[in-house]
Simulated scan of single mutants.
Amino acid sequence: MKSNFKRALCAISLLAISSTALAQHTAADASAMVRKAVVYLKKNGKEKLLAEASNPKGAFVDNDLYLSIYTLDGKVAAHGANPKLIGVDVSQLRDANDRYFIKDILGAARSAGSGWVDYKWVDPASKALRDKSVYLEKADDLVIAAGFYK
């Protein structure tokens, strides 16, 4: 009886560890989500994309991987993790290294149309300051971004 309990406990522990490992996202996941959003925008229009991107149970939220969509002047148009940010000008927001990372995101969108921006941010899961990378693409008058913790 005790050995069955130990086996069950081991199985549950392994499942928890593997679930945590599966929750970690990659650069490929972030860029794929942004590309999926650009296709969605072209097919369904701006209003539907913004609504879906801000829906916590929508197609563009996967645990700690979600879309942040900005206007070219730095206002949040949609946010998968914090809808209270919608309409807020975040262009002056700085990371832990005092870097204006939103300005960097907007600048990359204007100059190259797409790219990666790295910054330091608090991981909501671990509450630790971590390196984060965000992939972005300019689509119409929006900047669509998704990031992952390294």
Rank of each mutant, 00 (worst) to 15 (best):
D131I: 03
R130P: 06
K132P: 03
V34L: 04
K2H: 03
A21Q: 13
Y40S: 00
A28H: 04
V117H: 01
T71A: 00
D141M: 03
W121G: 01
G80P: 06
K36Q: 05
V88H: 08
A37C: 01
Q24W: 12
A81L: 07
Y40Q: 00
N63V: 02
S13K: 14
S126K: 00
T20F: 11
W121H: 07
S133V: 09
R130K: 14
N97S: 07
A16E: 11
A146H: 07
T26Y: 04
S31L: 02
A77N: 06
Q92N: 12
N97C: 03
K150M: 13
A30N: 02
I17G: 14
I144K: 05
A59Y: 11
G147E: 12
G87C: 10
D141S: 07
E52H: 13
N4H: 11
K46C: 11
L65N: 03
I86A: 05
A30R: 02
K120P: 07
R99D: 07
V76F: 02
D123H: 03
A109E: 04
L129M: 04
T20M: 13
V122P: 09
L72P: 02
A145L: 10
V117M: 04
Y70K: 02
K2T: 08
L72H: 00
H79I: 02
P124I: 11
A128Y: 09
K138Y: 06
N44R: 06
N4S: 12
A30Q: 01
K103Y: 10
F148R: 15
R130M: 12
K132F: 05
C10G: 14
G115L: 02
L50Q: 11
R94C: 13
I12E: 11
V39F: 07
A51V: 12
L106V: 05
E137P: 09
D89N: 08
L67Q: 02
Y40L: 03
A37V: 06
D89R: 00
D95Q: 01
A21D: 10
V143M: 03
A109F: 01
S68C: 12
A128K: 15
A146M: 11
N63M: 10
K127G: 07
H25M: 11
E52I: 13
K103Q: 15
R110H: 10
A128M: 13
K46N: 12
D89H: 04
G147L: 13
A28V: 01
L50E: 12
N97P: 04
K57M: 13
R110F: 07
A125H: 14
A32R: 08
K75S: 00
A108Q: 11
N44Y: 13
A16T: 15
I144D: 02
D118K: 10
L65M: 10
G115K: 03
I144W: 05
W116F: 04
Q92L: 08
A96E: 13
N44L: 10
A145N: 10
D123C: 00
V122L: 06
N82W: 02
W116C: 04
E137R: 07
D141G: 05
Q24I: 14
A28C: 05
A53L: 08
G147T: 09
Y66K: 07
D118T: 06
A21S: 13
C10S: 15
A28E: 09
K127H: 09
M1F: 05
V143L: 06
